[in-house]
Design a protein around this nucleic acid. Structure first.
Lengths: 203, 203
DNA sequence: TCCTTTCTATATCGATCGATAAATAATCTT
DNA sequence: AAGATTATTTATCGATCGATATAGAAAGGA
């Protein structure tokens, strides 16, 4: 049972990738359907037939981003030999991802706090969930370290995760403002200077 | 030599304040002239006569914001008895400013990294300058502490300032995402845990 | 070879965007 | 009171927004 009807004249994955780059760069409101169709090289009806609406296209673009950089950061955390190494890798890898030549600076999910303005409530909820996921992952890694005896039971995994996620989100802003890779790496290292104080047993 | 012609029927300062609140809340692109005129309670020609253009209005709104919260944070830094107290006050006061009831969450200048998209190049430059100013102020306070012998000459004022500004900018994102005052204060305190490590004499 | 199906190209929809022309109203100057 | 000046109201400008109706083109199935 092969595909029926006239075959699509463009590559859907490639079109989605181009859309992701535009949304990442300019945000939802800042990117027009006209820009999208021009960048992809197709007409509006083809884009609507393939993705449904601008809002749905944005959601797919966000999912594609998460499957790339999001998974990459998650792997850094999972594969690190210790909780401290996981957090450090998370920040250092973020610095690299935020400054790749040829890609928009900063994290698409983080910037969506503002970039996502104008999207539907459905998309807004998806964005909020995506942002909350980083907290969940890092917090889980810290709890695991506590249970393994690597970190004292008195430390606060939620609070520590919250701090490092805040730093990473701040790095997104800095990257958007033109910060270089060395500058972002220095910020990441500065944040790691708080590690011992945050994880040591409290009195 | 009194004012000639028909007097303005609305309060310009009040109109600017309402415009600032809207731009702060929804960004430049996210706020339409229609919303602005409705919120202020005047017609479009009156708004254009008073402020020139949407872009110029945004610039004035940004200046008003800086004269409020910007000056407030600058005073916290200037009046603190030590460099450490200055940075701590900067972060703790930011946490409070970012979560005031009745005001949009986060810092208008920081969020303008993205919110400002769509503004003219002139406005974009003004926004970039405003963002760079925090770095200048904190860095200067740290250099002053070094010269006063309060901090060792081996520490890196630019790097330390960069880190704490990144945390503060991250707090803006978190505030936008619904973080509460206690949560932001905890993040600020976590960042302060890095102080000793960042300022101690290097080997 | 026709029919069904799906996609593409052209043209355009109503709504809204930022901004303004023209006419009227309100104030100061003389 | 008359003229000058400025603000306001009303109506609307051209451009662009996201989205589609329509018709033609390209494939598989019968």
């Amino acid at each position: 049972m092969a595909e029926r009807g006239r075959p699509r004249s463009f590559d859907r994955d490639n079109a989605l990738h181009r859309a992701m780059m535009l949304f990442w760069e300019k945000g939802f409101q800042g990117t027009s359907m006209s820009e999208l169709t021009t960048a992809i090289g197709i007409n509006a009806p083809s884009l609507y037939a393939a993705f449904g609406s601008k809002d749905a296209l944005y959601r797919e673009a966000m999912a594609l981003y998460e499957q790339g950089d999001g998974i990459e950061l998650g792997r850094q955390i999972a594969e690190a030999p210790s909780a401290k190494a996981a957090v450090e890798a998370y920040l250092m890898r973020s610095a690299a991802l935020f400054t790749r030549p040829g890609k928009p600076a900063g994290c698409m999910v983080v910037l969506s706090v503002i970039h996502g303005a104008g999207t539907s409530s459905q998309t807004g909820a998806a964005l909020r969930d995506a942002r909350a996921e980083a907290q969940t992952i890092i917090e889980a890694r810290l709890r695991q370290a506590v249970e393994a005896g690597e970190l004292p039971a008195t430390c606060d995994p939620a609070g520590i995760a919250s701090f490092y996620i805040t730093v990473q989100q701040g790095m997104s802003i800095r990257a958007r403002d033109g910060a270089t890779l060395p500058e972002l790496e220095a910020i990441a290292q500065s944040a790691m200077a708080a590690w011992d104080g945050l994880t040591q047993a409290r009195s």
